[in-house]
């Protein structure tokens, strides 16, 4: 189905995604490398690698949440088209969702690789060590899964609002993944969140998995404190996969009942 290629191109040419998902994240990476750490504060290669992996995990998550916002807007602007297409073209809700899934996973990998390359170059230069990621293929796989999760979450939220609550809430809802990313991202970076919350939250799962496959170290409850308790990345992976599948199922159900909203209504809400 060609939807995936058009949708991917549409996202790749989305200036907002480039601005917030790439350039603004580059700014955060610079802050992490040069502002949040003093010269000489990190003196060993393992410490530098762990610090770098912290930032990669968090920034990749922020970048992916920008993708989520773009996906949410594109779904709710397309609600009349979707309602029509499911009735009067060969497009089925499941086909559309799978196309979006493929597109989002591709964008997830694309954004994550940009962050990976940027983090590696910037932090290696800053700390004077070769801070090469420990497992790039696994990082790519979990970036794709993270992209899929962001699609599942944003489509679920926007479809609930579109179908049942009215468009006044869409602007706020589309930023919920971004807000959650910031809350959980900085939460785990500096504070000790309950272990059960860390395992059950897909946001922390994404950060920890990306951290783990960049650094090769087990993620810790407080990412900036290597002596805090460690977490099992397998449970994190299971949690993220379960959330993704659950939200995808719910989104597929809601998509089949999509309520067409006029574009004018969407613009004015």
């Amino acid at each position: 189905m060609a939807v995936i290629s058009y949708y991917t191109r549409s996202l790749l040419t989305n200036k907002s995604l480039w601005g917030w998902g790439v350039l603004f994240m580059g700014f955060w990476l610079v802050l992490g490398a040069y502002i949040f750490v003093q010269t000489g504060e990190i003196a060993t290669a393992p410490a530098a690698l762990a610090y770098t992996a912290d930032w990669y995990g968090i920034i990749a998550l922020f970048s992916l949440s920008s993708l989520s916002t773009s996906i949410a807007y594109s779904i709710y602007y397309a609600s009349p088209a979707l309602a029509y297409c499911f009735r009067y073209t060969k497009l089925r809700p499941i086909t559309y969702l799978l196309n979006l899934l493929g597109s989002s996973s591709f964008l997830g990998v694309f954004l994550s690789l940009i962050m990976l390359g940027g983090t590696y170059a910037l932090y290696s230069t800053r700390f004077g060590f070769n801070l090469r990621p420990s497992d790039i293929p696994a990082a790519v796989i979990f970036s794709a899964l993270s992209g899929a999760f962001m699609l599942a979450l944003s489509s679920f939220l926007v479809l609930v609002v579109n179908n049942y609550l009215g468009l006044r809430n869409v602007s706020f809802i589309s930023f919920v993944p971004l807000l959650l990313s910031y809350v959980f991202g900085f939460g785990q970076l500096f504070t000790s969140l309950p272990t059960v919350l860390l395992y059950s939250s897909p946001m922390t799962a994404m950060i920890d998995l990306l951290y783990h496959f960049y650094s090769g170290y087990a993620p810790t409850v407080v990412l900036t404190n290597p002596s805090s308790a460690t977490l099992d990345w397998r449970l994190m992976a299971a949690s993220l996969t379960a959330w993704t599948l659950l939200l995808l199922l719910a989104s597929g159900f809601l998509l089949g009942r999509i309520r067409p909203r006029s574009i004018e209504e969407a613009r004015q809400a």
């Binding site: 939807v3 058009y6 549409s10 009349p80 088209a81 009735r87 574009i263």
Partner: peptide, 15 residues
């Protein structure tokens, strides 16, 4: 697929 329309709103599946 037997029905079609000129209402442009339904053709905005993506940008």
């Amino acid at each position: 697929t037997r029905l079609a329309t000129n209402v442009l709103e339904v053709y905005r599946l993506a940008r």
